[in-house]
Amino acid sequence: MPIDPAAALAAPPRSTDIAWEQRDVLLYHLGVGAGAHRPATDPDELRYTYEKDLQVLPGFVTVAGGGLAKAGAFSQPGLDIDLTRVLHGGQRIELHRPVPVFGRAVLTSSLAAIHDKGKAAVLVMRSEAADADGPLWTCDTEIYARGEGGFGGERGGSSRVEMPDRAPDHELEIPVRHDQALLYRLSGDWNPLHADPDFAKAAGFDTPILHGLCTYGITLKAAVDTVLDGDASRVLGYSARFAGVFFPGETLRVRIWAEGDDRFLLTASAVDRADAPVLADTVLTTRPA
Protein backbone atom coordinates (compact mmCIF):
# COMPACT_ATOMS: atom_id res chain seq x y z
CA MET A 1 0.00 0.00 0.00
CA PRO A 2 1.53 3.37 -0.98
CA ILE A 3 0.64 4.97 2.36
CA ASP A 4 1.07 3.09 5.62
CA PRO A 5 -0.59 5.49 8.10
CA ALA A 6 0.66 3.70 11.20
CA ALA A 7 4.27 3.66 10.03
CA ALA A 8 4.16 7.23 8.73
CA LEU A 9 2.66 8.70 11.89
CA ALA A 10 5.01 6.70 14.13
CA ALA A 11 8.14 7.84 12.30
CA PRO A 12 10.38 9.98 14.51
CA PRO A 13 10.67 13.68 13.69
CA ARG A 14 13.51 14.75 11.41
CA SER A 15 15.75 17.64 12.37
CA THR A 16 18.05 19.65 10.17
CA ASP A 17 20.00 22.87 10.51
CA ILE A 18 18.89 25.80 8.36
CA ALA A 19 20.25 29.29 7.88
CA TRP A 20 19.31 32.43 5.98
CA GLU A 21 20.56 35.96 5.50
CA GLN A 22 19.31 39.29 4.18
CA ARG A 23 19.96 38.29 0.55
CA ASP A 24 17.48 35.41 0.92
CA VAL A 25 14.89 37.72 2.47
CA LEU A 26 15.32 40.37 -0.22
CA LEU A 27 15.04 37.77 -2.99
CA TYR A 28 11.85 36.33 -1.49
CA HIS A 29 10.32 39.80 -1.23
CA LEU A 30 11.08 40.52 -4.89
CA GLY A 31 9.61 37.12 -5.70
CA VAL A 32 6.26 38.12 -4.19
CA GLY A 33 6.15 41.48 -5.95
CA ALA A 34 7.80 43.89 -3.53
CA GLY A 35 8.88 47.10 -5.23
CA ALA A 36 6.81 46.49 -8.35
CA HIS A 37 3.79 48.73 -7.80
CA ARG A 38 5.14 51.93 -6.28
CA PRO A 39 8.25 54.02 -6.96
CA ALA A 40 11.33 52.00 -6.05
CA THR A 41 12.35 54.64 -3.51
CA ASP A 42 9.01 54.64 -1.68
CA PRO A 43 9.84 53.99 2.01
CA ASP A 44 6.88 51.62 2.24
CA GLU A 45 8.55 49.36 -0.33
CA LEU A 46 12.14 49.88 0.77
CA ARG A 47 11.38 48.10 4.03
CA TYR A 48 11.05 44.97 1.87
CA THR A 49 13.71 45.68 -0.77
CA TYR A 50 16.61 47.49 0.92
CA GLU A 51 18.74 46.23 3.81
CA LYS A 52 18.38 49.46 5.83
CA ASP A 53 15.39 48.92 8.18
CA LEU A 54 14.64 45.61 6.42
CA GLN A 55 11.76 43.57 7.86
CA VAL A 56 10.79 39.99 7.05
CA LEU A 57 7.41 39.19 5.52
CA PRO A 58 6.30 36.08 7.44
CA GLY A 59 5.56 34.12 4.27
CA PHE A 60 9.35 33.82 4.02
CA VAL A 61 9.24 30.94 6.51
CA THR A 62 7.85 28.69 3.75
CA VAL A 63 11.17 28.96 1.88
CA ALA A 64 13.68 29.75 4.66
CA GLY A 65 16.64 27.42 4.54
CA GLY A 66 15.14 25.36 1.73
CA GLY A 67 11.52 25.07 2.84
CA LEU A 68 9.59 21.81 2.56
CA ALA A 69 12.25 20.20 0.38
CA LYS A 70 14.84 20.69 3.12
CA ALA A 71 12.49 19.03 5.59
CA GLY A 72 12.44 15.80 3.55
CA ALA A 73 8.67 15.62 3.70
CA PHE A 74 8.16 12.59 1.44
CA SER A 75 11.24 10.57 2.37
CA GLN A 76 10.01 9.19 5.69
CA PRO A 77 8.79 5.61 6.26
CA GLY A 78 5.23 4.81 5.24
CA LEU A 79 4.98 7.35 2.41
CA ASP A 80 5.49 5.81 -1.02
CA ILE A 81 3.59 8.39 -3.06
CA ASP A 82 3.39 9.12 -6.77
CA LEU A 83 4.49 12.77 -6.76
CA THR A 84 2.76 13.41 -10.11
CA ARG A 85 -0.57 12.94 -8.29
CA VAL A 86 0.23 15.30 -5.42
CA LEU A 87 -1.23 18.79 -5.01
CA HIS A 88 -0.41 21.50 -2.50
CA GLY A 89 -3.78 21.91 -0.83
CA GLY A 90 -3.18 24.52 1.84
CA GLN A 91 -0.66 26.34 3.99
CA ARG A 92 -0.69 27.61 7.56
CA ILE A 93 2.03 29.46 9.42
CA GLU A 94 2.17 30.48 13.07
CA LEU A 95 4.75 33.03 14.17
CA HIS A 96 6.00 32.74 17.75
CA ARG A 97 7.99 35.97 17.31
CA PRO A 98 9.12 38.11 14.37
CA VAL A 99 11.50 36.40 11.97
CA PRO A 100 15.03 37.88 12.07
CA VAL A 101 16.74 39.08 8.89
CA PHE A 102 19.76 36.87 9.64
CA GLY A 103 19.10 33.54 11.28
CA ARG A 104 20.21 30.03 12.10
CA ALA A 105 17.70 27.51 13.38
CA VAL A 106 16.92 23.84 13.80
CA LEU A 107 13.97 22.76 11.65
CA THR A 108 12.11 19.76 13.07
CA SER A 109 9.66 18.10 10.70
CA SER A 110 7.05 15.41 11.17
CA LEU A 111 3.80 14.10 9.78
CA ALA A 112 1.13 15.65 12.02
CA ALA A 113 -1.92 13.93 10.50
CA ILE A 114 -3.26 11.82 7.64
CA HIS A 115 -6.90 12.29 6.66
CA ASP A 116 -8.81 9.79 4.52
CA LYS A 117 -10.96 11.68 2.01
CA GLY A 118 -12.03 8.55 0.11
CA LYS A 119 -10.49 9.14 -3.30
CA ALA A 120 -7.56 11.01 -1.82
CA ALA A 121 -5.48 11.38 1.31
CA VAL A 122 -4.62 14.69 2.93
CA LEU A 123 -1.26 14.75 4.65
CA VAL A 124 -0.42 17.49 7.14
CA MET A 125 3.34 18.04 7.19
CA ARG A 126 4.48 20.05 10.22
CA SER A 127 7.79 21.93 10.42
CA GLU A 128 8.85 23.75 13.57
CA ALA A 129 11.82 26.10 13.66
CA ALA A 130 13.68 27.13 16.79
CA ASP A 131 16.88 29.04 17.38
CA ALA A 132 19.01 29.67 20.47
CA ASP A 133 16.31 31.97 21.87
CA GLY A 134 13.46 29.47 21.49
CA PRO A 135 10.63 28.70 19.03
CA LEU A 136 10.41 30.84 15.89
CA TRP A 137 7.59 29.43 13.78
CA THR A 138 5.35 26.45 13.09
CA CYS A 139 4.46 25.69 9.49
CA ASP A 140 1.73 23.22 8.44
CA THR A 141 1.65 22.15 4.81
CA GLU A 142 -1.42 20.27 3.56
CA ILE A 143 -0.68 17.84 0.75
CA TYR A 144 -3.57 16.42 -1.29
CA ALA A 145 -2.55 12.99 -2.63
CA ARG A 146 -4.96 11.80 -5.30
CA GLY A 147 -5.73 8.10 -5.35
CA GLU A 148 -4.24 7.51 -1.90
CA GLY A 149 -7.44 7.47 0.16
CA GLY A 150 -9.71 4.61 1.15
CA PHE A 151 -7.44 3.20 3.84
CA GLY A 152 -10.08 3.48 6.57
CA GLY A 153 -8.66 6.47 8.38
CA GLU A 154 -10.48 9.42 9.91
CA ARG A 155 -11.80 11.96 7.45
CA GLY A 156 -10.62 14.96 9.46
CA GLY A 157 -12.39 18.24 10.10
CA SER A 158 -13.17 20.98 7.62
CA SER A 159 -10.99 24.06 7.29
CA ARG A 160 -13.68 26.00 5.43
CA VAL A 161 -14.22 29.57 6.62
CA GLU A 162 -17.63 31.24 6.42
CA MET A 163 -17.18 34.59 4.74
CA PRO A 164 -19.18 37.67 5.82
CA ASP A 165 -22.37 38.43 3.92
CA ARG A 166 -21.31 42.00 3.19
CA ALA A 167 -18.98 43.97 1.00
CA PRO A 168 -15.30 43.68 1.88
CA ASP A 169 -13.67 46.39 3.95
CA HIS A 170 -10.82 46.57 1.44
CA GLU A 171 -10.52 45.48 -2.17
CA LEU A 172 -7.24 45.62 -4.08
CA GLU A 173 -6.22 44.86 -7.65
CA ILE A 174 -2.59 43.77 -7.97
CA PRO A 175 -1.05 43.41 -11.44
CA VAL A 176 1.41 40.51 -11.37
CA ARG A 177 4.53 40.61 -13.53
CA HIS A 178 4.90 38.22 -16.45
CA ASP A 179 8.23 37.08 -15.00
CA GLN A 180 7.00 36.72 -11.41
CA ALA A 181 7.31 32.93 -11.35
CA LEU A 182 10.85 33.16 -12.71
CA LEU A 183 11.75 35.47 -9.83
CA TYR A 184 9.96 33.44 -7.17
CA ARG A 185 11.54 30.10 -8.17
CA LEU A 186 14.96 31.52 -7.24
CA SER A 187 13.88 31.13 -3.60
CA GLY A 188 14.04 27.36 -4.04
CA ASP A 189 11.00 25.92 -5.85
CA TRP A 190 12.48 24.69 -9.13
CA ASN A 191 9.38 22.84 -10.39
CA PRO A 192 9.43 23.30 -14.21
CA LEU A 193 5.64 23.70 -14.14
CA HIS A 194 6.33 27.35 -13.29
CA ALA A 195 8.86 28.04 -16.04
CA ASP A 196 8.81 25.51 -18.90
CA PRO A 197 5.95 25.97 -21.43
CA ASP A 198 6.29 22.40 -22.74
CA PHE A 199 6.15 20.95 -19.23
CA ALA A 200 3.13 23.11 -18.41
CA LYS A 201 1.30 21.94 -21.54
CA ALA A 202 2.02 18.32 -20.65
CA ALA A 203 0.42 19.04 -17.27
CA GLY A 204 -2.69 20.45 -18.95
CA PHE A 205 -1.98 24.20 -18.84
CA ASP A 206 -1.60 26.57 -21.77
CA THR A 207 1.32 28.30 -20.09
CA PRO A 208 3.34 27.98 -16.85
CA ILE A 209 1.38 28.78 -13.71
CA LEU A 210 2.43 30.84 -10.70
CA HIS A 211 3.52 29.00 -7.56
CA GLY A 212 0.69 28.77 -5.05
CA LEU A 213 3.05 29.96 -2.33
CA CYS A 214 3.93 32.98 -4.45
CA THR A 215 0.26 34.01 -4.60
CA TYR A 216 0.10 33.25 -0.87
CA GLY A 217 2.96 35.70 -0.29
CA ILE A 218 1.57 38.39 -2.61
CA THR A 219 -1.76 38.26 -0.78
CA LEU A 220 -0.12 38.41 2.64
CA LYS A 221 1.96 41.44 1.63
CA ALA A 222 -1.18 43.19 0.37
CA ALA A 223 -2.91 42.55 3.70
CA VAL A 224 0.08 43.67 5.79
CA ASP A 225 0.37 46.89 3.81
CA THR A 226 -3.37 47.57 3.94
CA VAL A 227 -4.51 46.65 7.44
CA LEU A 228 -1.27 46.55 9.49
CA ASP A 229 0.30 49.79 8.26
CA GLY A 230 3.04 47.72 6.66
CA ASP A 231 4.26 46.27 9.97
CA ALA A 232 4.99 42.61 9.20
CA SER A 233 6.08 41.95 12.80
CA ARG A 234 2.42 42.09 13.87
CA VAL A 235 1.52 38.87 12.02
CA LEU A 236 0.75 35.98 14.35
CA GLY A 237 -0.81 33.50 11.93
CA TYR A 238 -1.75 33.17 8.29
CA SER A 239 -3.56 30.28 6.61
CA ALA A 240 -5.03 29.68 3.17
CA ARG A 241 -6.45 26.97 0.95
CA PHE A 242 -5.23 26.87 -2.65
CA ALA A 243 -8.49 27.03 -4.60
CA GLY A 244 -7.27 27.47 -8.18
CA VAL A 245 -4.42 28.38 -10.48
CA PHE A 246 -3.08 31.83 -11.27
CA PHE A 247 -1.01 32.79 -14.30
CA PRO A 248 1.87 35.29 -14.37
CA GLY A 249 0.77 38.50 -16.09
CA GLU A 250 -2.75 38.37 -14.69
CA THR A 251 -4.23 40.75 -12.12
CA LEU A 252 -4.95 39.44 -8.64
CA ARG A 253 -7.99 40.73 -6.75
CA VAL A 254 -7.60 40.63 -2.97
CA ARG A 255 -10.62 41.21 -0.77
CA ILE A 256 -10.25 41.76 2.98
CA TRP A 257 -12.87 41.66 5.74
CA ALA A 258 -11.98 42.81 9.26
CA GLU A 259 -13.32 40.79 12.17
CA GLY A 260 -12.33 43.02 15.07
CA ASP A 261 -8.84 44.43 15.35
CA ASP A 262 -6.85 41.20 15.23
CA ARG A 263 -8.51 38.85 12.72
CA PHE A 264 -8.99 39.34 9.01
CA LEU A 265 -10.59 37.13 6.36
CA LEU A 266 -9.31 37.25 2.79
CA THR A 267 -9.96 35.90 -0.67
CA ALA A 268 -7.83 36.12 -3.80
CA SER A 269 -9.13 35.71 -7.34
CA ALA A 270 -8.05 36.18 -10.95
CA VAL A 271 -9.57 39.40 -12.35
CA ASP A 272 -8.77 38.34 -15.93
CA ARG A 273 -10.81 35.13 -15.62
CA ALA A 274 -14.07 36.43 -14.15
CA ASP A 275 -12.69 36.32 -10.59
CA ALA A 276 -11.84 32.64 -10.70
CA PRO A 277 -10.88 31.62 -7.13
CA VAL A 278 -7.18 31.43 -6.34
CA LEU A 279 -7.01 31.50 -2.51
CA ALA A 280 -9.95 30.67 -0.25
CA ASP A 281 -10.55 30.14 3.48
CA THR A 282 -7.76 32.61 4.15
CA VAL A 283 -7.30 33.94 7.68
CA LEU A 284 -4.78 36.48 9.02
CA THR A 285 -4.38 36.88 12.80
CA THR A 286 -2.34 39.68 14.28
CA ARG A 287 -0.94 41.14 17.49
CA PRO A 288 -1.88 44.66 18.63
CA ALA A 289 0.09 47.61 17.23
Rank of each mutant, 00 (worst) to 15 (best):
I3A: 01
L9I: 03
A10P: 08
P12A: 11
P13R: 00
H29M: 10
E51M: 07
Q55Y: 07
F60A: 05
V63E: 02
G66I: 10
A73K: 00
L83M: 14
R85E: 06
H96P: 00
R97G: 03
L111G: 01
L111C: 14
G118N: 00
K119T: 10
L123C: 09
R126G: 07
S127Y: 01
D131V: 07
D131P: 11
D131Q: 05
D133A: 14
C139T: 00
D140W: 06
T141H: 08
T141K: 09
E142L: 12
E142P: 05
Y144S: 03
A145Q: 06
R146Y: 05
E148I: 02
E148Q: 12
E154K: 15
G157N: 12
S159W: 11
S159D: 15
L172C: 10
V176H: 03
R177T: 08
H178R: 11
L183P: 02
Y184L: 10
Y184S: 02
H194D: 00
A195H: 00
A195V: 06
D196H: 08
A202E: 13
D206P: 08
D206N: 10
D206Y: 01
T207E: 15
I218P: 11
A222N: 01
A222T: 08
A223W: 08
S233E: 14
S233W: 10
R255Y: 02
I256S: 05
A258T: 07
A270K: 07
V271L: 15
R273K: 14
A280K: 06
T282D: 07
L284I: 11
R287Y: 09
